[in-house]
Design a protein around this nucleic acid. Structure first.
Lengths: 128, 128
DNA sequence: ATAGCTGCAAACGGTTTGCAAAGTG
DNA sequence: CACTTTGCAAACCGTTTGCAGCTAT
């Protein structure tokens, strides 16, 4: 993977923030350094960086826009139902979800979503 | 809430399936009963039914399309990464996510997503 | 040198909406 | 009868893509 000016600055800008920005927010801040960059380039690079495992793509339930995260190590998120703000917080593999309720980052915890992914019986049979 | 023919049939069709259909899939099956219904009407009614708590709207991470579920009681989902199929399964509040791995519905479990929602410190202060 | 990347602008696809007519309670 | 809902079609909006020229390696 080439490290173009655009790619480098996109990555830098994402790493500067803890905000889990959308592609468009990132576009705005990258533009301060590269006024002629296009939104398409931002999308393309975010996709490539995510595939390379250098960033994470978040498709948070309830939010229609994609968000991006420069922290790739294992962690979870909490989202404010009122303002949409998303914060990181560490995931403890020994805790069940109910046990986190003792206030995460000062949030009033209202609930959680737990969803699994895997391979269904049919696809398991096919690919293996 | 009025129970129009359209609304009733949309609800019936959704209840008939365990497939977590998209709006468009539902539109196709409703059309067999009401050939002149429009996709816009399907969306409007799904929204209204969800607000009334009669159905659930799923915005599954990784899937760009909304899905709908006539089962409103507490349960979780598992999605096949290969074919996109989504199955229900019961949530046990005493288990931590790692402990579900012993095969859900015959799936090979690859991982899970756990995300919390609530009110952030700022919004908590504001609204209260 | 040359594959990969960029800016631009148009296309895409799921969802939403304005409107006049029809239907519900 | 008053008010909601419908069908239609166009608008919306975040994201993707085709293309011709540019750039990192």
């Amino acid at each position: 993977m080439r490290m173009t000016r655009q790619r480098r600055i996109i990555l830098d800008e994402l790493r500067k923030t803890k905000d889990h920005p959308t592609a468009d927010m990132l576009y705005q801040s990258v533009r301060r350094h590269l006024p002629r960059i296009s939104l398409g380039t931002v999308y393309r690079n975010l996709e490539i960086l995510a595939e390379a495992g250098m960033i994470r793509k978040l498709e948070f339930g309830g939010a229609s826009r994609m968000r991006f995260d420069a922290t790739v190590s294992r962690h979870s998120h909490i989202r404010c139902v009122a303002c949409g703000r998303i914060d990181d917080f560490p995931l403890d593999p020994d805790l069940n979800p109910e046990e986190y309720t003792a206030g995460i980052n000062g949030y009033e915890v209202l609930g959680y979503n737990l969803e699994f992914y895997g391979r269904c019986p049919a696809c398991k049979a096919k690919v293996k």
